[in-house]
Nucleic acid binder design. Structure first.
Lengths: 146, 146
DNA sequence: CTATATTGTAACTATATCAGTTACAGTTAG
DNA sequence: CTAACTGTAACTGATATAGTTACAATATAG
């Protein structure tokens, strides 16, 4: 899976918790990455309608979607990333009379599409709000040693 | 996803279609990779009880499991690979008073575990025999231009 | 017993992908 | 006009993956 997804989810949740405009520098510091990477991710989330941006002094990013309405599948769609990467390089022997050698690439692609679809379906059932719940639960467990 | 899985599935199906002992060289040629990689994969499948090996002259690999009884989840287990790789590097800020920064890594790990479980469940419903069916179907479609 | 073919494994190299860094044009507020 | 941003691109460095080579161990044939 592409790490962009992790950056995006972290950024969206942090934006929601702070509920104000945050610069790429501030987000990058919390996510432990660099500002350019954050900007690259946020630019796509903007196109996906999840955040709005403001350039210039006191600019930055602001969450415009309700966390309980944003599914993780929407985030993945906005980023245009696959959850399951095929990693299938070199199986594409087209001009080959062997059924296995010539057909495996297609079969594997189909298999990966099936995996991807099931991952998307699962991500479609989870929202940012769900993850935020988990955050606070974990924190409580930590604090009270549960 | 680890490419080892693709090599393993391809090798197992090819072994079944040929139903004889094949060397790592022969397998590598069909899979379009190198013999050392094939041997690394097959060694794990042997430990998983899916194939047997013979060293020496006329040695190689032979499928000992029934294709209709071997699920893709078994293959993944034998290889010890994850379908969904977390790709989460750098979120582990432990000594941090920010709930988001300190808690996201755990939440994301949990999310990836959920995705992995669903992928495994799907792979558990598919056998080598199912993929072989797809191979022959695709071939027919190609031959008859369906 | 020797020659040959093969697995199992390790070390090294090459390459591709991903993250970090730097830079800069464009934009906005004061 | 200046300062602080985004958006984007080019370059660099790190890391993971695949290919290459090598070799000990093993099994078969003659």
């Amino acid at each position: 899976m592409n790490g962009l997804f992790c950056v995006a989810v972290h950024a969206l949740i942090y934006l929601d918790k702070r509920s104000c405009v945050l610069s790429s520098e501030e987000l990058a510091a919390n996510i432990c990455t660099n500002a350019a990477r954050v900007r690259k991710v946020m630019a796509r989330l903007k196109k996906g309608g999840l955040v709005e941006t403001r350039t210039g002094v006191d600019g930055g990013y602001r969450l415009i979607a309700a966390p309980s309405e944003v599914s993780l599948a929407q985030v993945a769609d906005a980023l245009g990333v696959r959850i399951v990467e095929p990693a299938w390089h070199g199986g594409g022997v087209v001009d080959c009379d062997c059924m296995v050698a010539s057909g495996m690439a297609g079969v594997m692609d189909h298999l990966f599409d099936g995996l991807e679809a099931r991952c998307r379906a699962y991500l479609g059932t989870l929202t940012l709000a769900h993850l935020e719940e988990q955050l606070t639960c974990n924190k409580k467990e930590e604090l009270y040693g549960i």
